[in-house]
C-alpha cells in the first residue's frame, strides 16, 4: 500500500455569516512539497490554513492528514504536527525565552538548554538578540521570526505560513524565505505558504494554487499557471500584488 498524501481536502466548504467563503475545495498535497497558496486579499487563503491547523472545521466535505480524518483523534497532536505561523504573530508579554518556552505551560517535561534556544534562533536567522530581551521590543521582522522559531520547536511535519513576509522589506523577505527553504531541505517538512505576491513565491515554491473568491482557480507548477487559459487567473498573475 502506498503512503497516503499528507493532506487531502475533498469538497471542503466553509461558511461564515451565511456566505460560502470556501466553495467545495479539493486539494491533495504530498509530503515534502513547497506549495504557495496565492490569491487576492479576501480570496479565502487564511481560511484554508485555519482548516489545516484545525482552528476551524469545514461545514461540509472532508479533510485528512496522512489518511486520518480531521474530526477524529487528538486535535492537539494534530496541531503540533501541522504548525502554523499567523500573519500577525502574537508575541507574549515577557522575554524571548518565555516566548519560546511557552510549551512549558502545558508540557511539564518540556526543557531546552540555552544552547538549544540560541540554536533555534539562529535557524531562523535571529542572531544578535538576547534570550532575556523583552520580546515586545523586537522589530516586526524579528517578531515574525521569533514566532517561526516557536512553531518550529514543535518539530512539525507541516509548516503553514500566512503571508510570512507581509511586514518585511524585500531584502528581508528573501532572507527569511531562503532560511525556510533551507530548513525544509534540512528537516524535510512540508510547507504551505500563503502569499498575495506570486512574484516572490515563484522563487521558492514548486507548486502554486490560485484561489479566487473561495474557489480554486488553478493548481500546478508555474508552467501550468502561465498556460492557464482562465482570464481571471491571468489577470491575477499579471496584476502582481493584489
Amino acid at each position: 500500500m502506498e503512503t497516503p498524501p499528507i493532506f487531502e481536502l475533498k469538497n471542503v466548504t466553509r461558511e461564515e455569516a451565511g456566505r460560502e467563503i470556501l466553495k467545495a475545495a479539493s486539494i491533495t498535497i504530498h509530503a515534502g512539497e513547497f506549495v504557495a497558496l496565492l490569491g487576492p486579499s479576501g480570496a479565502g487563503k487564511t481560511t484554508i490554513l485555519r482548516l489545516f491547523n484545525a482552528l476551524d472545521s469545514p461545514n461540509s466535505g472532508e479533510i485528512r492528514f496522512r489518511g486520518e480524518r480531521y474530526d477524529e483523534g487528538s486535535v492537539r497532536d494534530l496541531r503540533q504536527k501541522v504548525g502554523m505561523v499567523f500573519q500577525t504573530p502574537t508575541i507574549l508579554e515577557g522575554t524571548v525565552v518565555q516566548n519560546l518556552m511557552v510549551f512549558q505551560r502545558w508540557r511539564k517535561d518540556f526543557v531546552l538548554s540555552d544552547e538549544d534556544l540560541y540554536g533555534k534562533l539562529e535557524q531562523v536567522g535571529l542572531t544578535g538578540i538576547g534570550l532575556d530581551q523583552d520580546a515586545k521590543s523586537l522589530s516586526g521582522g524579528e517578531k515574525q521570526r521569533l514566532a517561526l522559531a516557536r512553531t518550529l520547536l514543535n518539530a512539525p511535519d507541516v509548516l503553514l505560513l500566512d503571508e510570512p513576509t507581509s511586514s518585511l522589506d524585500p531584502v528581508m523577505a528573501h532572507q527569511i524565505l531562503r532560511r525556510i527553504k533551507a530548513l525544509q531541505q534540512e528537516m524535510g517538512f512540508t510547507v504551505i505558504m500563503v502569499s498575495h505576491d506570486h512574484r516572490l513565491a515563484v522563487k521558492y515554491a514548486e507548486r502554486f494554487i490560485v484561489l479566487l473568491r473561495g474557489e480554486i482557480a488553478a493548481d500546478g507548477p508555474l508552467s501550468v499557471l502561465k498556460g492557464d487559459d482562465s482570464a481571471a487567473v491571468q489577470a491575477f498573475l499579471n496584476g502582481g500584488e493584489e
Binding site: 491547523n53 482552528l55 492537539r76 497532536d77 496541531r79 503540533q80 504548525g83 502554523m84 499567523f86 500577525t88 504573530p89 502574537t90 507574549l92 511557552v102 510549551f103 505551560r105 502545558w106 514566532a147 516557536r150 512553531t151 514543535n154
Partner: peptide, 19 residues
C-alpha cells in the same frame, strides 16, 4: 483572541489557552 488561538495552534489545551 490572537493569543488564545496562537496557543491553541501550538497544541495547547483550551484550559491553558484561556488561563
Amino acid at each position: 483572541e490572537g493569543e488564545v488561538e496562537m496557543l491553541l495552534s501550538l497544541g495547547a489545551p483550551v484550559r491553558t489557552a484561556v488561563h
